[in-house]
Design a protein around this nucleic acid. Structure first.
Lengths: 202, 202, 202, 202
DNA sequence: CATGAATGAGAGTTCATTCAT
DNA sequence: TATGAATGAACTCTCATTCAT
């Protein structure tokens, strides 16, 4: 039996409204912090009343969860989409980096707030964990298929993922003056290629 | 322009009390989240009254700032201490990694909460930025002195710092099953050495 | 001075709908408490929209008032109906008790909630007062006509009414284990006959 | 392990304050209804801030429970106190009636609101049930010891209790005009004596 | 006539901060 | 200095009522 209090909007306008609340709410929470964002803030920014929020969402946290899932999808989908069988591993790698950078740009400050909530909220932690797992599994698969040595692949993949994550963060926020974007990206891809070693076959 | 309300404790016992509040408070905030930690929790855990906290600190955030500064010092000091002129660059590198891992272990979950607060609090952001700057500058200096090619050194250093950061995080929390600690560390140091390239003057 | 907002339904279907709202709403309010019953609950249970309720009723309280009046009628009517001139006083008494027990069974928990609302709502208090008055007056009349001594009749009638009320309550809810229904009823009727004393004439 | 959020006041002033909140809160809830009484109302009437209420009580309902327990104690204690071995059964009966009337006078409107909450709150229902049980058991014991016929004693006691309850209610609130207090009381005691029958051992 | 999405005032509760002792 | 009781603004969430369709 479904939740009886919140309802799934059927009308087009309602769906748009629900999405507007998710987008606005998640953005505010990520920009200003989960706790500092009040339901009144979200309602005002989304142009709705506070009451309607509780027609679509169980509670404030529910908005964040929905936003987080959209965020995860936004990060994952392009990866699946861009990796086609005819792509060589280097192009695929670049496609993945592009995807993640784009995801960061769209969701701005999301990452830090999510990481913090990960500590105290198991559901949120679970979603993030699963997302990261999907991405790294995808990377491992890609590399294994391309014939790269599978030795220490999980460890290498994890490190590569973190390298790309950090790169995305810097390229998105430019917190450190004097760093050259192109150079950063070049170094990261070089490093990943170094980590990959040479393909075993050929 | 001194703060008139809070005072700098002169007595030995008072100093101990202030430090106890900082340590306990910062730990609780990092473990359970800044917002979820109440001043009452801190007072109880530190064995003091809620009132006395406001003799030593301007507000709750002030406790966090003090804790953060201690944390930063804790991360930085060992780096300075362990890098002696007679050390070769590889040993120095390992010493730095050891220092940062240790720092992570001591301050546990601190990082995530700090990162989140960085977004909305400029002072906190400033402290973290300065700390990272100090570490990377130290690394750059170390490497330059050791005769490594200074080309793209800021970019490389930044990437190395992130590599080590991620490593520390994984070694401390072991969030991802199936990853081998020793291998991870080996790969990271290998990667750093790869990034360093060869010293210009052989 | 007619209410301009709500209207008196003319169509047969509308009348049925209004009655369904009254029945369902009053039942829910009595079972779960007035405050705990929401207009959404009533609408859902009655199979109508929340909006339509405000076409038939001024507000939520109005539904209760209507239900209460129906309840009062339900308690009173059988008393009038069952007391025919040819009935002796003892049979009439039993008929009244039967009527009240039946009323209780139909409206279940109504009494307690009504009593509580009586305190704060003068209209509700008035309806209940009037109902009780009708019943006791009816009793007084019945007894006077049957030739019983009219000394202290109002006081006696009031006490008899309460006796029957309590009896009905216990017979309906059986809250106290170990009490025998038949014995209770027997004792109550015996007590009433004791209270009545002997008819003056004959 | 005790509740960690609410504390048991140790200081005399604190105990007084807690009691003031209970008295004021319970009175307001009984006079105006549980739902209509807000925590702000209680705080204002008790001359405290809303916050302090939650130092002494888990929630609003907790205040009511405390008040209810005090009410029950107030009803029961005088019964135990006034029934001494040397008292004949008629004097004891009068003592009980006096006790209950007094209880009603002190707690005013309490009864109705309590009855209503009994429906939806098991804890409240339990307290009331236990109180009534204590009183009826006391009555049964008293009568059995006095040598009255124990036939149908539980049923008779229950009816007597209700008789007294109704009497108290009327004597306290005088809702029905034209009824004479003294006569009412006389009739009730007469009825009880009738119910008692004659002591078995002459 | 009917719908049910939308409103927004107001509820209970929390907690950083203050202050009488 | 130190206490912890007290404050009250601000939070999340509810629901009787309204209104666009």
């Amino acid at each position: 039996m479904e939740n009886v209090k919140t309802r799934e909007p059927q009308q087009k306008r309602s769906i748009e409204k629900k999405n507007r609340i998710i987008e606005t709410g998640f953005r505010l929470m990520c920009e200003n912090g989960y706790q500092k964002t009040t339901t009144a803030d979200i309602a005002k920014a989304a142009g709705v009343s506070t009451g309607i929020i509780y027609s679509y969402f169980k509670d404030k946290r529910d908005i964040f969860i929905y936003g987080l899932e959209a965020y995860a999808k936004h990060m994952l989908l392009p990866i699946y989409d861009r990796i086609t069988p005819d792509l060589d591993v280097y192009s695929a790698l670049n496609a993945i980096i592009d995807s993640l950078i784009e995801g960061h740009k769209v969701f701005q400050h999301a990452h830090k707030e999510i990481e913090a909530l990960t500590m105290t909220d198991e559901v949120i932690a679970g979603i993030m964990f699963e997302t990261e797992l999907q991405i790294t599994k995808q990377l491992e698969l890609l590399l294994a298929q391309a014939g790269f040595d599978a030795t220490d692949l999980p460890e290498k993949t994890h490190i590569m993922y973190n390298l790309v994550e950090s790169l995305c963060h810097e390229l998105t926020f430019h917190q450190h003056e004097g760093l050259n974007d192109a150079k950063m990206r070049q170094i990261v891809t070089d490093t990943i290629i170094f980590l990959l070693g040479k393909p075993v076959i050929s």
